[in-house]
Design a protein around this nucleic acid. Structure first.
Lengths: 342, 342
DNA sequence: GTGAAAGCGCTAACAC
DNA sequence: GTGTTAGCGCTTTCAC
């Protein structure tokens, strides 16, 4: 039980009176060991409280059973929900996680980061930071040289890249159609920052729903926030100026919707009588807003789980059959949750 | 630029016409290399796009520059705020992170987890999962054998263990004193689950403030939730039954306070006229509740940052001077933020 | 079935 | 200053 100096495969071998190869075979559950030897070696491993060094194994096999994960904005609830899905599936599949959080959402300092992962021999990388502006520019430069499979969470479809994403467009469209269906005639939108791909998709969903219903769309009907409640408040007030007849609003995320509810209360607009509000994300708290918020739920936990499962499966395929794995674009559906704000 | 087969220290050495030892010296910025050689070797490293294998370095130096991080409940906002602080300080200090999330808050399956970290040669472990019931029982069994420094975030003071924690007690006390100061006479408490150390500390702070003010404390004045908004709602309704004269309430966290606000509105209790509400955590959204929530801000980002800095400093001390490092109990102050709900 | 030798990519200790 | 020799702890040939 007490081994001040680290016990190695060699100690086990010596004690069992076999070579270290035989011990290695036992460790890796190979078949070509007699049952008797196996049992004896196992006993000694227990006795010595021996555990193989993962780091030595990684070096030797050139495989680490580690994934690199890149995230950003963990202080917000969205990214950490995705991360939670990643950790749980990684655990189930026997992979460990090397975590890096970008200092800012649109950090463009990716080269050292990828290099760091590579030098740690990760078997794959999950890029769970948002696509903003052209912050995917490095894909063409780096990917060929990287030689490690990379999977992206939430980005636009692109050649030769595997992506797992929420269906932002359809979710936004469904939200807007819901507002139309309950009889709203003047439906505005508070968008997230439009350098985010997700924000653009949601705006597009709103536009499309209106157009398909034969309704007008103009720039007067949309303002911008930066996802924060604070920004949602000013975006809302600004929108009311530009578009005073508004009787329904699709807000880019729940947090901005939260301050829309607050501001409405202050200026005496009753929700949902005077204004119907729909959010996006479906964060847990939204059920307890005043009034409870209608919103589009995106299953970020599932996003993370599917990403890990897909990456793992690609890697095993590559190893076992040496096949070229076709990149996929996987879409996770979102779900409209109707509550009292609409 | 293009190296299908991995370039190693040996390739660089051969190309530079030196031994790999010299290359190693350049990699590690040793002084005993002539400037000319150093320059030449560096150029070749660039040319070959060479980067040392972190994994081989770890094995050889017996030091990985990796910390293990244990977290739980990432789908909630608190743990991920702490994790964010951890990632940022780790980045600043040049440490990488190996992340594990417990499947449940009070998982008691710690042995394999610690073993996993150990087999990956982590230089230290940050335990950022909450202290619940007796889920620290393994400290005495495992720690001596582990031989890796472990730092805990948010737990009770204990012999020979370094801890970084928010001052839950003082924060709760300040919150309650604030309610007293604004003239509330019947101050209740909605506690978190009392098997959590943090929940007990907050309850104790509430009790202590009341007692010090010469006010009565009884079990009628407190109910329990499980941190979720949903549980806060029923805890609040139950509390109103038991303690109808209540005119002020200190709620164990902001999320439960959120549903207190919602429920109050429904039953026609005006906040803050009929009831003053104070939360705990200071999550960003609380400023945008209806009405904006008075709350005790705990700086979880700082918690994570201090934890990493302290762990790193302990490790460097241990290496450089081989001193025994005295365990510390570090308390991060919390801060009362007064808003309209009180 | 089992063992010997070589090697994963690097650093530490000592020589020159 | 620089090279040589041994490891770090394990796996992978290829013998026997």
């Amino acid at each position: 039980m007490t081994d001040k100096i680290k016990t190695t495969i060699y100690d086990v071998a010596k004690m069992a009176g076999v070579s270290k190869q035989t011990v290695s075979r036992v460790i890796n559950n190979r078949q070509d060991v007699s049952n008797e030897t196996r049992k004896r070696v196992k006993n000694i491993m227990d006795e010595l409280n021996y555990h193989p060094s993962a780091i030595a194994q990684s070096l030797s096999r050139q495989k680490s059973y580690l994934f690199g994960v890149v995230t950003a904005g963990l202080r917000f609830i969205g990214p950490s929900r995705t991360l939670s899905g990643i950790t749980s599936m990684a655990e189930e599949l026997g992979y460990g996680l090397l975590l890096k959080e970008l200092a800012s959402f649109n950090s463009n300092n990716v080269k050292p980061l990828l290099q760091w992962f590579k030098s740690h021999q990760v078997d794959g990388i999950i890029w769970a930071a948002p696509e903003i502006e052209d912050n995917r520019y490095w894909l063409k430069d780096m990917m060929p040289d990287l030689d490690i499979p990379v999977l992206f969470i939430t980005m636009e479809e692109q050649n030769q890249v595997t992506v797992v994403t929420t269906d932002n467009f359809s979710g936004a469209k469904a939200a807007t159609e819901h507002l139309i269906q309950i009889g709203r005639k003047h439906i505005g939108h508070i968008a997230g920052p439009l350098d985010w791909w997700e924000a653009r998709q949601r705006k597009l969903g709103w536009e499309t729903a209106l157009k398909e219903a034969g309704m007008q769309v103009s720039e007067q009907m949309c303002t911008l926030g930066n996802w924060s409640p604070k920004s949602g408040r000013s975006a809302f007030l600004e929108l009311l100026e530009k578009f005073p007849e508004m009787d329904g609003v699709f807000v880019g995320n729940d947090q901005m919707a939260l301050s829309v509810l607050q501001a409405s209360l202050e200026i005496g607009k009753d929700i949902p009588r005077d204004l119907s509000v729909v959010g996006f994300d479906g964060i847990a708290d939204s059920e307890f807003y005043c009034p409870p918020l209608t919103t589009v739920y995106q299953n970020q936990d599932e996003l993370g789980r599917v990403a890990v499962a897909e990456l793992a499966s690609q890697i095993e395929h590559k190893i076992n059959e040496n096949i070229f794995v076709e990149p996929k674009y996987i879409t996770i559906p979102s779900e409209l949750i109707i509550r009292q704000s609409s």
